[in-house]
Amino acid sequence: MSRLTPENVELAKQIIRRYPRPKSALIPLCHLAQEQDGHLADDAMVHIGELVGVTSAEVLGTASFYEMFKRHEVGKYCVNICTNISCQLMGGEELLEHAEQTLGIRSGSTTNDGLFTLEDVECIAACTEAPALQVNYRYFHRISNDDFDQMIDELRSGRLDDVVPPHGVLAKVRQDLAEEQIANITPPETQVMPRWIADEAAKNDPAASEGGQA
């Protein structure tokens, strides 16, 4: 239910600076908010709108298009079982049924203890490793029913905390691109022919040079 923390606002501003237009940072900022709260809270969307200069409705319009953004609280672990064709062939749908049994919930819902949300998802690009699943977007390949139960036990006991962060945390390594490192990101209307192109043009035809970036 929260706006971005001061630290995240600083990070948000750094991310916005990487794009020629602020709105391009909208999806990364929604991830940041989801990392902060575990889901994408309404207040966070309002705050993101303020940061990138669009209305809250526009933030929601974009965010709601993408299924990774959860507008309501979900479990600490989102267990996404692939049931698309390659996994279906190798038992993905049966694995999903087993997961429903093990967790005692239907796909699309969250366990009472708030630990697990189960979803059946579309292809996650692990087709040769079917059936595959992700927990908070960390891959688990060639999962049997027993593997699944063991994985759930390990998640419950915290033994996988190092590899599976709480829902919302996506990449644990970020691109560090401080403002002073940026070579040339400005709004498109201020951009000119890049230096190396201009220099080559000038070399071939000195009259044709038309300036260039610093």
């Binding site: 999806i27 991830h31 691109q175 691109l177 070579a183 990101i185 190396w196």
Partner: peptide
């Protein structure tokens, strides 16, 4: 050390085929 300058920005999606 050349006149070639480029930024590469990592951007990521959020789930939409």
């Amino acid at each position: 050390g050349t006149n070639f300058s480029v930024d590469i920005v990592l951007h990521w999606g959020a789930g939409a085929y």
